[in-house]
Amino acid sequence: MRISPTDVAQVMTLLHDDPEFRFLILSDLCGVDTGSVMQVVYHLWSDATPDWLRVIVDGLPREDPRAPSVTFLWNGAEWAEREAYDMFGIIFEGNRDLRRIYMPPDYQSFPLRKDFLLADDAARSPGQGVRHMEQTFQPAEYRRTPVLRQGLGSDAGHMAPGIQTAELASGEDPAR
């Protein structure tokens, strides 16, 4: 079932409350980056059927993904939404504690987005001599997809000179 972000609250309330559906339990909530758009995927469960109902909130723009929160139905979705925010930058409107959950609070990029490349993958690109653990500089040809790497970045004195921390395209952390 694919819905648009504007319908989330309505659809979810219907599925949860309607005596015909009774999807009382939210099995999972996660974000997905397809490369072109962002999605939020919900898996609901009702005791009427042994299978899950998959609700996909499709078409969130990559620049400013926003979706309504479902914490008014399930408290437990709060951390799942925090995780999706942390990993994808999807902003859930209505979640009253939308902070980074895994990464440090001042981390700037969103690791599970498709434009966040591990240093290793940059090294695998043709013609580049980047060793993944020590030197993480980006050659000029590969600048179009920035390596958003933050680990061990502050002590560049003795380390390889190339550790760079590229800013996100949208600028700064949208939550602040």
Partner: peptide, 10 residues
């Protein structure tokens, strides 16, 4: 001498 802090604060 390696820095203790391992990320750059914003």
């Amino acid at each position: 001498i390696v820095a203790n802090s391992t990320w750059t604060p914003a």
